[in-house]
């Protein structure tokens, strides 16, 4: 296993910058998730590490070796794609063994067998080895695809939305599985997704990309609790963080350059207003099993709060709002610290 270092890497396609001056270090045994919307540069970053793209500027290092000029094949990386591409005419066993049987490797067949059996155990597909790849369910196929990456024991793993072609339940199962395997192997993984749940649950650290720039890098908790700008704040959390113009809460003490106040739904406290003073009115109550979201209109802006169903409020009620741990942003969306 090994670390990955990107040093001031830039890449343009035509005149469109895809990755801009990116610095990133993925430590040995760490799982870093790159999170961002389409076009943020996540996949390009992954492809630059793999050698499937050449950077215009900057260096890529894997395990203390500068690989910037090296071909993909000699970089010792494994790439898992969104769409599992297995050989349909081969058995699961042969699909797993395939990368090891490459002539250049000259691996003896008993060693291959030992590795394949090992990986099959790890992925809980021991009983599927003799089946053809096409006889498997989607979740099993993606497991085999991941297995084919693992079996080579490369220095690093690159994964591009490996779970997103699966349905929600399999995704949740494989997510937990992948985390377990990563821990057991101590694997270094750079992982790309647009799915915040995946990012939050898998990552040692999350790197949030926006328009080719790495805007924040930190643990899931750091990113969620302490976002550097409005984009990052809005990227994580369901329901989305409330972003309210400063003027709506004129009496909340805030730094002078504050233009927007952000507050997470779980940090909004509301109660029925007494003494005729109120900040808003309940517009809509959305019931979600055990909890409900109360949509409160405050000076024309919707604020969503998380509430208990027994809160005793109804649509139209006047309420007082209290904000715990508000986040302040300036006119450009950058975080302003109190």
């Amino acid at each position: 296993m090994a670390e990955i270092v990107l040093d001031a890497v830039s890449k343009q396609f035509g005149r469109t910058p895809a990755v801009r001056d990116l610095d990133l270090r993925v430590a040995d045994g760490e799982l870093v998730v790159l999170l961002g919307p389409t076009g943020a540069g996540k996949t390009t970053t992954l492809r630059l590490v793999a050698g499937l793209e050449q950077p215009d500027a900057g260096r890529v290092r894997i395990a203390d070796r500068d690989v910037t000029a090296e071909a993909p094949a000699v970089r010792d990386v494994a790439f898992v794609f969104q769409q599992y591409s297995l050989y349909p005419h081969l058995s699961v066993y042969d699909n797993l063994a395939f990368p090891l049987r490459a002539p250049a490797r000259r691996m003896p067949e008993p060693d291959i067998d030992a590795r394949v059996q090992d990986i099959a155990r790890l992925l809980h597909i021991e009983d599927k080895l003799t089946k053809r790849a096409t006889q498997l369910s989607g979740g099993q196929m993606q497991r085999v695809a991941i297995g084919r990456a693992l079996v080579r024991r490369p220095a690093i793993y690159l994964m591009d939305e490996p779970l997103s072609s699966l349905d929600a339940k399999l995704r949740a199962e494989l997510r937990i599985e992948l985390k377990r395997i990563q821990r057991e192997l101590g694997a270094t993984i750079l992982y790309v997704t647009h799915d915040q749940t995946e990012a939050m649950t898998l990552a040692s650290r999350i790197g949030v990309l926006d328009e080719g720039r790495l805007v924040q890098l930190g643990s899931p908790r750091e990113i969620y609790q302490d976002p550097v700008n409005v984009h990052v704040a809005a990227r994580l959390g369901t329901p989305t963080v409330n972003l309210v113009p400063r003027g709506v809460f004129a009496d909340v003490p805030a730094p002078p350059q504050t233009a927007t106040i952000g507050v997470r739904t779980e940090h909004v406290r509301i109660k029925k207003s007494a003494n005729g003073k109120s900040t808003g009115r309940v517009r809509w109550i959305e019931h979600l099993g055990d909890q409900c979201h109360l949509h409160v209109t405050v000076a024309g802006t919707d604020v969503v709060t998380l509430g208990d169903p027994d809160i005793g409020l109804a649509v139209g009620d006047a309420v007082d709002i209290e904000m715990l741990a508000p986040l302040f942003f300036d006119a450009r969306g950058e975080r302003v610290r109190a």
Partner: peptide, 11 residues
Amino acid sequence: LDAEYLGTTQI
């Protein structure tokens, strides 16, 4: 056995 942190909630 495990706790998956999701921000607002955890599983």
